[in-house]
Design a protein around this nucleic acid. Structure first.
Lengths: 108, 108
DNA sequence: TTGTCTTATTGCAATATTACGATAAAGAAC
DNA sequence: GTTCTTTATCGTAATATTGCAATAAGACAA
């Protein structure tokens, strides 16, 4: 159908899926990586770094913002996009059980 | 276009995106959570737990397997799906820099 | 062999995503 | 005011994803 049946799953499952989905595109991974390492967060410099058209980058930024992974702050004439620490901590916390599980000897 | 321009991105960006994309659906999150907590890994019990048709669950399992996050071992008449520790460690390692970054005071 | 149980695949319809050019909107700079 | 700069949105085309019924494929049992 092309329509995820989100109603059948828990809020936590849906939220983790939303975080993961937002990160599920190389351009968005590149944006997050850039924001994790650079001091700069101006939208314009993100557009310069990502090898896609400005409209497309803007669309990817919107998806990351919708998922909550980044937030945009107006900075004079431009916009500063930054990681949202709270959401990233939540993301990390939701992955932790699986990250811990695989440290033990796994079945099969 | 609906076609990701993966060529423009690094292998690492594409791999992280592939992991995240595989996890980007609540059914697949639920499958991973189930495999992280239960001893059972038989395909049939996964189908019982996920509120979707058997064909759909099989499709989701295939995507998780393609991404490398799980592996299937034939267990008599059925199949045992387990997490792939190596890939999960890689996934974790690739997220670590961002997880560490957000512990510091962030810009803006 | 025949039947049963388990999982995968096929075929299809509905919806979502990706990408970009063109254009709009909102400020700064003048 | 006008113009430039910066970012967002619209419109559109191509492709991908999701979901399920139906069916196939494989292994085991009798």
């Amino acid at each position: 159908m092309g329509l995820s049946k989100t109603d059948n799953f828990t809020a936590e499952e849906n939220e983790l899926a939303a975080f993961a989905k937002a990160l599920g595109h190389p351009a968005r991974v590149a944006i997050i990586k850039y924001l994790s390492t650079q001091a700069s967060c101006v939208c314009g410099s993100i557009v310069e770094v990502i090898p896609l058209a400005q409209a497309t980058v803007s669309q990817h930024l919107k998806e990351l913002k919708n998922a909550g992974l980044i937030q945009g702050n107006i900075e004079g004439n431009s916009i500063c996009y930054c990681l949202n620490p709270e959401k990233w901590k939540k993301f990390k916390a939701m992955l932790e059980p699986t990250f811990n599980y695989i440290e033990q000897p796994v079945c099969c």
